[in-house]
Every structure is written in C-alpha cells, then in structure tokens.
C-alpha cells in the first residue's frame, strides 16, 4: 500500500504535468515560458546593469561580465578557430548564458513557493521542447556556417576522408541535435527529479549535497552544450586539405 501511494505521489511530483496554454491547435507548456521569460529578463537586467557605465577600471558587475566574455571568447576561439569565431561568438555566448542561467535559475529560485493550477515551475531546460529548440538552432547554425563559408564545398565534409563516411556523416546530422537536446534535458530533469524524490523521502539534510551536485552538473551541462555547439560549427567551417 505504502509503495503504491509512493509511486502515485512520485508520478504526481513532476513528470507529465504542465500548465497548458492553448493557442490555436498548439498546446504550449506555459510554466516553461513563464520561467524562461523571468530568467531571460533577469539576464537582460543583469547585463544591462553591468554594461551601463563602462569604465577603464573594471569594477564589480562589469568585471564579472568581462570575465564571462573572455571565457566565452576563449571557448569559441578554441572550438571554431581564429578565422570565423567572431561571427559565432554571440550565438555561443547566448547559448551558454541562457542554458547556464536556466539551469541555475531552476535550482536557485524558490519556484515552489508559487503554486500553479497544473504542473510546477522549474528550470526551462528541464523541458524537452526548450532543449530541442536550442539543439535545432545549433543544427541550423552549423549548416549555415558551413554553407556560407565554403559554399557547395561544404558537402566535401560528408565524404571526408573517404566516401565510406557518407552514411555516418548523414546520420550525424540527426544524432547531433538529438544527443544535444536529450543530454541537456535528461541531466536537468534527472537532477530536479532526484532532488524531488529525495525531498519526498528524506525532507532534510540529505538533499543538500545532491542539490550542490546538481548546481555543479548544471554548470557543466551549460559548458558542454556551448562547447559542442561551437565544435559543430567549427567542424562545419574547417578547411580540409
């Protein structure tokens, strides 16, 4: 009996419950939009505050933002290469910051204080729609990067180094967004679920290390997502000789 009630409660805890918004024939996951907007707004406020009064002497928020900028630039430069990384730095930086702020915002803002009619607020990246959207953007980006930089020669990449690679390379175009989206979604959802279940079983103390671990993996996931996106773009613009 206990086990049974546990299962139903567990199921009720998170999975499959959404705050649906109906627009035409489309049912949107409202809670994802709400948290996304709030976090994007926070990010925008944070960045506009940090860049409002730029000085030669980097202080406080400006220093932090410049540090982040340096970090993103180094990431983009190492993955994409000196030649075109400048074109893609804004995209990579946006991905990194959005994923990072989503992951951490999901964990560090006490969303559960707010009750919704259905579902609950949390990290936007714990929803597969968000991560698939991001991953498809990455796919579009690397195709665009390859075609705009190399023209039709981009497709040499598919038969490089031998034409035997062709089916695998084509398959990769599908597995890249798939793995990108599912990795991020799985990690963040699993983190939230683990904390949720632990809170349900042992309400105090025990979830704390797991929450810290969650913060750590969230940051790592953001880094992985941005790095892989940059790597795919770099792969597309790379010149084979």
């Amino acid at each position: 009996m206990f086990f049974n009630s546990l299962l139903t409660n567990f199921a009720a805890l998170e999975v499959g419950q959404h705050l649906y918004w109906q627009i035409g024939n489309i049912r949107l996951h409202g809670q994802v939009f709400l948290t996304s907007w709030i976090l994007l707004g926070a990010l925008l406020v944070f960045i506009s505050l940090g860049t409002k009064k730029m000085e030669n002497d980097p202080k406080g928020l400006q220093n932090l933002l410049e540090f982040l900028w340096d970090y993103i630039r180094d990431l983009a430069r190492t993955q994409i290469g000196e030649k075109v990384y400048r074109d893609w730095m804004p995209f990579i930086g946006t991905l990194f910051l959005f994923v990072f702020v989503s992951n951490w915002g999901g964990a560090l803002i006490p969303w559960r204080l707010i009750k919704l009619p259905s579902g609950e607020l949390g990290a936007p990246t714990a929803d597969i729609n968000t991560t698939i959207a991001l991953a498809l953007l990455v796919s579009l980006s690397y195709f665009y990067a390859g075609l705009s930089n190399k023209g039709w020669r981009y497709f040499e990449y598919y038969v490089h180094p031998t034409p035997i690679m062709l089916p695998f390379k084509i398959l990769e175009d599908f597995t890249k967004p798939l793995s990108l989206s599912f990795r991020l979604f799985g990690n963040i959802l699993a983190d939230e679920l683990v904390v949720g279940v632990l809170v349900f079983l042992v309400p105090l103390i025990l979830p704390i290390p797991v929450m810290f671990l969650g913060l750590f993996t969230s940051a790592i996931q953001a880094l992985i997502f941005a790095t892989l996106a940059a790597y795919y773009i770099g792969e597309a613009v790379e010149e084979h000789h």
Binding site: A107, L108, P110, R112, L113, V195, V199, P203, L204, I205, P207, I208, M211, F212, L215
Partner: peptide
C-alpha cells in the same frame, strides 16, 4: 517541506 525551502536556504 513541500517547497523544500529549508534545504534551498542552506544551498543558497
């Protein structure tokens, strides 16, 4: 307990 606010406070 439902909001996990105590653990959250410790983490923050």
């Amino acid at each position: 307990f439902e909001t996990n606010i105590l653990n959250w406070a410790v983490v923050v």
